[in-house]
Computed example of a mutant assay.
Amino acid sequence: MNPLTNFLGFEIFNGLNVLHILIVIWLVGVLIGMGRYVQNIISAKKIEDRIIQNSKCYKASEILNHFIYPDYDVYISTYIPSPMVLGLKKCILIPDIFFTESELANILNHEMQHLKQNDILFKQVIAMLTILYWWFPPIYWLRKNVNLYIEVRADEKVTESLNSIATLEYAETLVNVQKKIHTTDGIISSNLSTYLIGESLSILSYRVNYLLNKKIKQKTNKILLFFLFLLPILSNSIIFEPYFENSNSLDGTLSEQAFLNDNYLIQHQDGTYSLFNGKEAFYIDNPNDLIKSGIKVVKE
């Protein structure tokens, strides 16, 4: 790490080094990201209010025959492009198009699972991490795959108690919903994806395949998982220390080997020892470490 430390400490102008410049660039990126985040929150709130004002409101218990969730509000409107949960408001938004009773039940169960798991809050955490680590490319890959993760997790929770036939009907609902909403238009911009959880055509294929063959989640090699579990533990048990000599602090000193070659011990008749460097002798109280190091011993 010494070359990296030297690079970061390289002075560019009047006490300003590379590290200072990088910190300033990072802070500018964070401020820009936070500005966009706040702006999108304001936009999402305005759109949410507009949708709610132009929607028919129902209770989930009025639509579902078998109700096991909190009785969330359900808004139906032509402004809504697809079933979703928008913002931090505990409500469900559904487009004003025809769904069968079975499809509507599956849709509501799925969206209510998002509310139950607080998936919106999870997306906000990822948004904050993206703002802080905007300079780290893998964070964007993580953000891109968050939607896939939360959708598959919701599907898993909804279908875990269903039999194979009911699970197949649920997967069929995913396909039918996409067919019905594919041509609808809404007022929600893609920039607000952080503040909504909605249907996505890009991950539909994976979700359907997962439901039809749930064993896909068991394909990760167990040896690999065990290694990944041990990796953070092992990485903290091994310390790499680079070889580095500070020439300023070493002026006038001798290396260990030079010291052993240029000095020797004198063992006096009374059992005491002195260190002799060719010019002067110094009394040594405990010479054991020097003797173990291999220094020459001369008996008096």
Rank of each mutant, 00 (worst) to 15 (best):
D96R: 02
I80P: 06
P95G: 09
W134K: 10
I107F: 02
Q117N: 15
A127C: 09
M112F: 09
L104W: 02
T130R: 13
I92N: 06
I131H: 05
V125F: 09
S102R: 03
K90R: 15
A105C: 08
I131Q: 06
Y75E: 00
Q117M: 11
K116M: 07
K116G: 02
Y75M: 00
N106W: 04
F99Y: 13
F99K: 05
K90S: 09
F98P: 00
P81L: 03
K90G: 02
K123R: 15
D73R: 14
L108D: 00
W134C: 14
G87F: 03
A105T: 15
Q124E: 10
E103A: 01
V74F: 11
I126A: 14
Y72T: 05
Y133K: 02
I120R: 01
Y133N: 07
K116Y: 11
T78F: 04
S82F: 02
L129P: 03
Y79T: 00
K89D: 12
Y79R: 01
S77T: 13
I76V: 15
L104F: 07
M84K: 01
D73A: 13
I80M: 02
N118F: 14
I97Y: 14
K123Y: 10
L115T: 05
L108C: 03
F98I: 02
E101Y: 05
A105H: 02
K89G: 02
T78Y: 06
I97D: 12
I120M: 10
P83L: 05
E101F: 01
Q113D: 06
L121N: 10
T100E: 15
F98A: 12
T100L: 08
H114M: 07
S77L: 08
Q113I: 11
K123C: 11
M112R: 03
N118M: 12
Q117V: 01
E101S: 09
L93W: 09
T130C: 12
E101V: 10
L115K: 01
A105W: 00
T130G: 10
D73P: 04
S77F: 14
Q113L: 06
V125A: 11
Q117I: 01
L108A: 01
N106V: 04
P83I: 10
T130A: 14
